[in-house]
Design a protein around this nucleic acid. Structure first.
Lengths: 360, 360
DNA sequence: TTGTAAGCGTTATCAT
DNA sequence: ATGATAACGCTTACAA
């Protein structure tokens, strides 16, 4: 009990505080201390550095804690220590590709090391992303996980000024080693493009999401272009279709690029829904995949291997990325050096949707 | 500057604090106050209740705030006010059905009203869910959003004791009106079952996820059973297949129930991946859908309408649920009465995967 | 309208 | 090994 502050009879008095619900259930460290007959300092130590209090006391304190149902007030703790044991992550969206998997992995790993995840979505909007990060800063996160490298121009200065550690995920750039974790998007699409070109393809179409504010999408597009250029090839303007990340859009854009002349023989899709849409539209319109046209995607979500024609795609290890992102940001916060690889290998998963180009 | 506390010459002294990075960038309310030449109280008021300070001061304070790049330290604020403007949500998983959509919606809505979302996953494990909620409580969340009604036995008492408002989402029970928001899972599957029975189906199979710790899944199963019982029908034991929530599993369980004798003519799937798997397995094994067998699902994610045979399914308005969940928990926290509906209508979206049973 | 000053629950410093 | 006590940055009576 204790805490029942002052007036019981209900006089005006200095107004009992009670702005919101008592966070820790009304019991504080002092209540525990009082119950055991020690000082708050001792209780605090018993919690945070048990080895430094006598076993006997430790025992009695643990008992009282359980008895009273006390849990530490993280707010007060954060306030006092200057760290909140909290990490903020801003994803473009949940529910696309490997993001949910990664978010899950981050969350699990953070929990393991005693941190909590604050998760927000930017909806691919740099302004919103910045706003979310500001919120996080206000909330006192110890570090921030971002996706990609393209951000609001004021974002990085903001973080710098506040000395807030941050990392970029789902991307790897050797130039900023130590602050990014993910696959090399450029390299992944070079590999994919090479694979298709080696099959004999010459006319490539690309269905992808907009590259503005999305350096990962840009890197992928650049990878395709660079790989083709090495062979003296290029994507025709009418074979480049830009959209969003829905199946619907994939169907539409597939139909669009297939209506051109000459037709492409290989279609590279910038994300999973676009690839799914392309494949389903191809089948729905009676085309044979890959005999008439090869289609490849990005992100190996489960459905990719289950469509009537399983889809060749770039597999990004989302779980691994999330796990490492969590470790990395915590290591940054706690000033440790990462001792694990930061570049994740994206691999090409070859399935039935890709093959040699038609003879025609 | 200011903050440069005491010793500049670098004597031991009482040790400058600096445990972690300074959260607010080194500038505090007092710095702003000093710069303007007013008291901290005035600055605080200028921020929180602008109408109560003179316009002139308000102006100068705003200027100084911008100048110094000050942002409030949410930790201190939370500490002082007893509220953190933070809501915790524990979802079973991201990346299944409408959960990502709902999470997104919650997050957006909370942002709108000045709250921040803490998101965690329970992986359908009640212990983990409880642990996450404890973490949230420690972090001082003002309220908690849960999914469903089945929880760790100690969870609700825990929340009660701490006076922590919470709501259940993705479920609606009239009996606890005001603390839940979502569809009536039971009713939804009664409707779906009636629809199929009215088409003439008599032999029903059910492919669903385990019902332990998942009252929503239980409610759906009960809905099917009750609707059938009203017609004197029941699901044969060998036509009830329990699994997880993967496409893979859907394929396997579909094959399993179709290998029985007599065969079912209608298959009700408990979630989207199971339905997708069932349909794809049916097509892959040369069955005609719905001529040979009708297949229906739960959750209307995009792919459902795009498969070679579009899938009849229960559509749950995930976005609406998330939006309302966010509003509801905030209203609970701020002791307001909700003035919007809490029950979301699940609707049956009829597509090509369902039809009359085969004559056989 | 503005200033003064008392907390809020914990950790950390210093003394014992 | 333990206790006393001063912060931490902000909000909020209450006084002026």
């Amino acid at each position: 009990m204790a805490k029942v502050k002052a007036e019981v009879g209900g006089m005006p008095g200095p107004a009992t505080k009670m702005p919101g619900s008592t966070p820790t259930g009304g019991v504080g460290l002092r209540d525990v201390a009082r119950a055991v007959g020690v000082s708050t300092a001792t209780v605090s130590r018993a919690i945070n550095r048990p080895e430094v209090v006598s076993p006997e006391l430790r025992e009695r304190i643990a008992l009282a804690v359980a008895e009273l149902g006390w849990i530490p007030d993280g707010r007060a703790r954060a306030f006092t220590t200057g760290r909140s044991q909290t990490i903020g992550a801003v994803f473009p969206t949940l529910g696309l590709g490997d993001f949910p998997r990664a978010a899950n992995a981050i969350q699990r790993q953070l929990l393991d090391v005693g941190y909590t995840l604050l998760l927000a979505c930017s909806e691919y909007d740099p302004d919103l992303e910045f706003q979310q990060v500001r919120k996080f800063a206000e909330r006192g996160v110890d570090g921030v996980i971002l996706v990609g490298l393209a951000h609001h121009p004021d974002l990085l200065p903001f973080l710098k000024q506040r000395n807030l550690p941050f990392i970029s995920s789902f991307i790897y750039e050797p130039a900023i080693h130590g602050s990014c974790v993910g696959p090399d998007n450029h390299k992944a699409l070079v590999t994919m493009t090479d694979y298709l070109a080696d099959l004999g393809h010459v006319r490539f179409a690309v269905i992808a999401q907009a590259t503005e504010n999305n350096d990962r999408a840009s890197a992928r597009l650049a990878g395709i272009r660079d790989a083709l250029a090495l062979r003296g090839l290029a994507v025709r303007p009418q074979h480049l279709a830009i959209g969003t990340w829905t199946i619907e859009e994939g169907r539409r854009l597939f139909a669009q690029v297939m209506a051109t002349d000459p037709r492409p023989t290989a279609i590279i899709c910038g994300n999973a829904p676009l690839a799914i849409g392309a494949v389903l539209e191809a089948l729905a319109t009676g085309r044979r995949v890959p005999e008439d046209v090869s289609i490849v995607g990005y992100d190996d979500i489960e459905i990719m291997s289950h469509l009537p024609v399983p889809v060749t795609t770039v597999r990004v290890p989302g779980e691994e990325i999330g796990y490492r992102a969590a470790r990395l940001i915590v290591d940054r916060v706690e000033q440790r050096e990462p001792d694990y690889p930061l570049e994740s290998e994206a691999e090409i998963v070859v399935r039935a949707s890709s093959g040699p180009p038609p003879k025609d």
